[in-house]
Nucleic acid binder design. Structure first.
Lengths: 328, 328
DNA sequence: CTGAAAGCGCTTACAG
DNA sequence: CTGAAAGCGCTTACAG
């Protein structure tokens, strides 16, 4: 910029004015500066500009895994909102590792991002409270923050599961199984709660061998299914607590002689092409991302009250066939 | 930092030394500075630091759509390599819009990212040549850059298709159809070339109604299939030029009375759960992302020659059932 | 309409 | 072992 000013024979401030298209510069001066800019191939360094402006026009997104379809479409939604607000997006995957989450979050804070959208991997976010006080707007997504009262946008996991299980009950099932992810995961616990509530609402008993929580590895799910599907009190329908469980369940159930109904939490591509097509309770990944990002920018613009906001988005039941199979 | 220095009664440089854990500071001084840092809640502003250091420790990734599974896993691989090199990742989706691609690329350049990984949407990247001269390392991915000789990492599209078509021929097919994406798309044209080569290698004639290029919208694909699958010279096998075509083809073929063999380019989740399981030619999305990012950092470290590098990764045939159906 | 000075928050290149 | 000065590339707050 100094070179441009020298070549055009003007002050730094005038170059700055031309570059930023500020009014009040003679057309003649503009032309001279522009010529110098073109000749020198000058282009403004936004990093320097932003240092002075005291905002970085960027937001950081920390999630489990950028490659996971759910988070991928959530990311895209966050990106779109950020773009609409003139901000660029940093992304990082925590891989469910609390240390990595913290590392990423602090790296973004050190760059002084204007705001953060975080899918919590850690269950203690007190390390963030000083940052938030320092002015980094933060919105948690998919799961609430641990030990910190902060903005959060999530799916109504319990409600969605309740609806899915009620759907099975409405189709005549009375013995329904539930296979969920590990207890410690907030969404998993909420879905389990929804299962119990739906059964209770219908006045149906729940036997202890009908539900189980744990890793979603295929072997574990198969073993759990074996238990549920044997004996005189075996289940006639299954609610799968997430995507991976659903897929394993489809594999196992397709090998059985008598049909077992299935509803899964989380939609997935080609669910309608399977045999039978899989009924699911779908989360709105773009909707969650969009809400979170919008809330973030409302915070940045100081539009929202200081009170932490909690937004819960409904899940949607999509009947496709597997959930409408009657009890055998 | 000024405040910390004042509180600790030391110079700025000493604070800098402590923050950066440089050697040669008395333990006593370190303790005093550290106490001031803690008391004031100071944390280094990396944006300011990087302005002075003249590198930003960040790379920009521009692709079609962050929500697309192929690009999502490519992104994750780029992220992992970037992390290993201590760099953060900016991501942006061009949505196949050349203007948006340019906008994103230039925004990243204006932030002075150290390097760029770009999935080209535009077919003219001359706008980038001045940036590249200015030192922004750039690697193109999935498709070569337009009108610019630059580093590129891509899949062997022609070779992969040749292998897939040869697989169908090996299973006895002589009349094989090909439905591809629009001609203008580099990968689409390459795959079409592979189809023609495989047929020619086997000495098989290709009738004009057996292959077609165009939008991958379901209606277009259905119409194209109708043509190929009717008349005395109808095809007994189909090669689908990409994911979306494959999915539509599965739907159409599953409704037919006589079986038609199918091989698709690009793997997709649950392909093995469909009926019949779908044989595909798989690209290595993480491998492509990893190679591109590694090449980028080798450039940044000045390890590679100045000559643009072209890396072509093999595609892999995964037989699952649909591609092994004999001619009816 | 234009520009010189100070400053954003750090590091570099010195000197002591 | 420590620090004052200059500078990274811009903008802000003035003054003229």
């Amino acid at each position: 910029m100094k070179d441009v000013a020298a070549r055009a024979g003007v002050g730094l401030k005038t170059v700055s004015r031309v570059v930023n298209e500020e009014a009040g510069v003679t057309p003649d001066t503009v032309a001279r500066v522009q010529a110098a800019i073109d000749a020198l191939g000058f282009r403004r360094n936004d990093s320097a500009r932003l240092l002075r402006t005291r905002r970085t026009a960027s937001v950081g997104l920390v999630l489990e895994d950028l490659a996971d379809p759910f988070y991928a479409s959530l990311s895209r939604a966050v990106e779109d909102v950020a773009r609409a607000h003139g901000a660029l997006l940093f992304t990082g995957s925590s891989a469910e590792d609390p240390r990595r989450e913290k590392e990423l979050v602090l790296a973004f804070c050190a760059r002084r991002v204007d705001g953060l959208v975080v899918v919590p991997a850690s269950d203690d976010h007190r390390y963030l409270s000083s940052e938030i006080e320092a002015g980094v707007a933060t919105v948690f997504v998919d799961r609430p923050a641990g030990a910190l009262d902060a903005d959060v946008v999530l799916t109504d996991n319990a409600g969605g599961t309740r609806e899915g299980v009620a759907h099975l009950i409405a189709h005549g099932h009375r013995r329904i199984g539930f296979i969920g992810d590990q207890q410690g995961i907030h969404t998993a616990a909420e879905r389990l709660r929804g299962y119990h509530e739906a059964m209770e609402d219908a006045g149906l008993p729940v036997r202890p061998e009908w539900w189980t929580m744990g890793p979603t590895a295929p072997e574990r799910v198969r073993a759990a299914l074996d238990v549920m599907l044997s004996g005189p009190e075996r289940v006639t329908a299954l609610f799968a607590g997430n995507n991976r469980v659903t897929v394993t369940a489809v594999r196992v159930l397709s090998g059985l002689s008598r049909p077992v109904a299935l509803v899964g939490f989380d939609d997935f591509e080609l669910a309608d092409l399977l045999n039978p097509p899989v009924t699911v309770v779908a989360q709105d990944a773009p909707g969650i991302g969009r809400s979170a990002a919008q809330l973030l920018f409302r915070r940045l613009d100081g539009i929202v009250s200081d009170e932490p906001t909690r937004i819960e988005l409904p899940a949607r039941l999509i009947p496709r066939g597997s959930g409408e199979i009657p009890p055998s």
